[in-house]
Each structure stands twice: as structure tokens, then as C-alpha cells.
Design a protein around this nucleic acid. Structure first.
Lengths: 193, 193
DNA sequence: CCGGTGACGACACGTCGTGCCATCATTCTA
DNA sequence: TAGAATGATGGCACGACGTGTCGTCACCGG
């Protein structure tokens, strides 16, 4: 998804092949002991081509999240009116949680296991969450919220979402992410009084 | 501070000199256009010695925060009893805010300006905040809080602290950080209902 | 049929970060 | 006081990372 209908001249799945090769190699030998030339070779491409699709060695693990800020922004843009700011943000996460996660729990879990195995990958994950918060913050400002409130609230929303994602992945049952999201938000509300 | 009285055989301030050289060079030419050999040369040391004091090129900007997780943990460890978990966390930040920030606002501001100028430095800053949250989470678990609540609450506390630090630095007046911290916590409380 | 477009290959290069050993001033020990 | 131990630094080599640049080659449009 995301690719046009005509699909160019060359195999249009270079980034996908690189991502699959990287996931395999990182699982087999670990992130630190895998080199970019190894990833490119397994995908049938060259090192230079790898760096055309991904900014660095870590970036390949976040291919699926590239559209995430734009998607959340779009969902928030045409949300039902009359919501309080915090409900608007949570509504955006609700919509995303319903669509694109419950069918991919094992894939998300495998990716999360790799990320948690290396500090540098965890670092990049934090930056991606921050970028998501930035996108939400922009929408909130457009909706008239004051800048500082928008920054606070978007960070709060991402905090709840990330924590809910962790609970959802760690749990044995396959409770829908939507439910975990609500429970996490309530739990934090009780904690902070 | 932090160094013993005897102070070793060699100049004991190698890390400090490297930090000062890095701050100068990053301000003069930017982070990306500064090389580690340049930093080491200005500090009168070699590249190899730089990497004995700092894990990588970014780490030199976070020398002052190394003791931060341990300090916050210590403050929380002997906090007055009878506090709710959230008040315990905020009490720790209060204590730190009173001691080590209000006299160094310009220094903190200069460092923050450099960090905000480069995505890679912002990324490292997020990791440091996450490490701080991890330390707080450990203390909360020791106090008997359930694991998931401890993770949520420590992240919440760091969110408030980082946002308050931003407000404190951006403001023109030199309102004590302690006040900004309280105001930020109240503001987020009103936003999230 | 032919020039433009755009992804990929190939090469060179500077920087990053680490392993390894030598140096040398201080401190400890006999 | 002589010699051994300690520990921070210097020096060197090396693999990996990430980028600039040019060339190649399939497809597309006039």
C-alpha cells in the first residue's frame, strides 16, 4: 500500500525486500553484528541502494511507521466536532488502533523484540514517537489550542499510546488494542489524580 | 564537584575540557561540521582519549546529566512518607529543581540551543530522558507500586519535567523552575480532565 | 525514433568508533 | 630508596558507516 497503480519500471519492492532481509539478519545475528552490505546482499541490492531507501542502519526497522504521523493527522483533521482536546487525541489513536494493528500482532511483536535488544534502536524509536507527537501537536495548534497546551497534550497522548502498545504486546491474550488503550488512559488518570 | 580531593596524577578535568571545547565548536560551526579530532585538539588531547570519556560524538553534551538518574533516585529514596505516588515523583523533581538549575539557566539554555539544532542530538536527549524515567520507575517498584503503574507514572513525571524545563528556558523572566514545574503539572491536569 | 526521467551500480572518500600496545608519571611495597 | 604496580594518555591500524559523484540502463513521452 502506498504505491501507485503503475508501479514504475524496476521492482517496486526494494524497500520491502531490504526490510525483510534486515529483520531476518537482526534476528539471526543481532543488530550490532549485522552490516549494511549484508542486508543489501540478502535483498539482492547494493549498499548504495540501501542508503537511498533508508537514512541509516537503524531506519530500516521503521519503514512501516513512515506514514504514521500523516495518517494520525488526517484522522484528527476530520474528527467529529465538539470533542475536548484530550478526547480528540485519543479518538485519533482509537481509529488507528482499530485499523492497522490487531491483525499484525506477531509482526509488531517481532519488530519490538529486535528494537528492545539494542539501545540504539530504542533511541530511534523514541525519536519516532517524538515525531508523531509533533504531528499531533501541529493539528492541535490548527484547531486553536495554545502552543504549550498542544505540546503537552500530544506528548501525553503518545505516552498513553506507547504504554498501551506495550501492554497489548506483552499480554498473552489478544485483547483488541482499542480496549487496552482505554484501560491505559484510565489507569494513568487514576494515578495522577 | 563530583571529584575527590586528591585529584589523581594527571589533569583531572579532561572530560570538562572536552565538554567546553565541544560546546564552543558546536556553537561556532554546528554539530555536523565538527569532527571529534577537532574537539580533542582544542582540549589538548587526542581522539582516542575523547572516546575513553564519551561513548560517541553526541555524548559529550550530556556530561552534566550523568549523575541525574542516581540523584533523583536518592532523593526519592528518602522522601517523606505518606505521599501518593504521583506526589512522590513530583517531589523528586522539585528537590532537583531547587538545587541545581536556577543558577545555571544561561548554560542550560546554550546547551539546549545546540541540542535543538540537530536531530541526532535531540534523539540522544530523548534517550537520556528515558533513562531517567527508568531510574524513577525502579524506585517506584521498590516502593511497592505495580510494574505497569510505575512505568506509566515515571514517564508522566519526566514528561512534565521536560515540558517545564522548556517553559522555564523560553520565558524571558527568571521565574524559579520550581514554580514552572507546578504550573505545568496543573496545566496538564486540567487538559486531561 | 529519440531525449528525458529515475532507480540502481560502482567507486572514492572522510568520519566514526574500537582493539591493541607503548609510554610515563605517580603510588605502593619491600 | 629501588623496583613493581597502577592508570590515564598517545599512537596506530582497522572495519563499518554514510555521502558525493558519475555511469548505466530500462521505461516513458513527444
Amino acid at each position: 500500500m502506498g504505491y501507485g497503480v503503475t508501479m514504475g519500471r524496476w521492482a517496486p519492492d526494494a524497500a520491502i525486500r531490504l526490510e525483510r532481509a534486515a529483520l531476518e539478519l537482526f534476528s539471526e545475528q543481532g543488530f550490532a553484528d549485522t552490516t549494511v552490505p549484508q542486508i543489501a546482499a540478502r535483498a539482492g541490492l547494493t549498499t548504495r541502494t540501501y542508503f537511498r531507501h533508508f537514512a541509516d542502519k537503524r531506519d530500516v526497522l521503521f519503514l512501516r511507521e513512515r506514514e504514521f504521523p500523516a495518517v494520525v493527522s488526517a484522522v484528527l483533521a476530520d474528527a467529529p466536532g465538539g470533542l475536548t482536546p484530550v478526547d480528540l487525541v485519543m479518538h485519533g489513536f482509537d481509529a488507528v488502533a482499530r485499523d492497522g494493528f490487531d491483525d499484525w500482532r506477531e509482526a509488531v511483536r517481532a519488530r519490538r523484540r529486535i528494537i528492545r535488544s539494542d539501545m540504539h534502536l530504542r533511541e530511534r524509536e523514541l525519536l519516532k514517537s517524538s515525531a508523531l507527537a509533533g504531528a499531533i501537536e501541529g493539528v492541535l495548534v490548527e484547531h486553536g489550542l495554545e502552543a504549550r497546551d498542544a505540546a503537552l497534550l500530544s506528548s501525553f497522548g503518545v505516552l498513553v499510546f506507547d504504554a498501551a502498545l506495550d501492554s497489548w504486546l506483552e499480554g498473552a491474550n489478544d485483547r483488541p488494542l482499542h480496549d487496552v488503550l482505554r484501560e491505559t488512559r484510565d489507569r494513568l488518570g487514576r494515578l495522577t489524580g
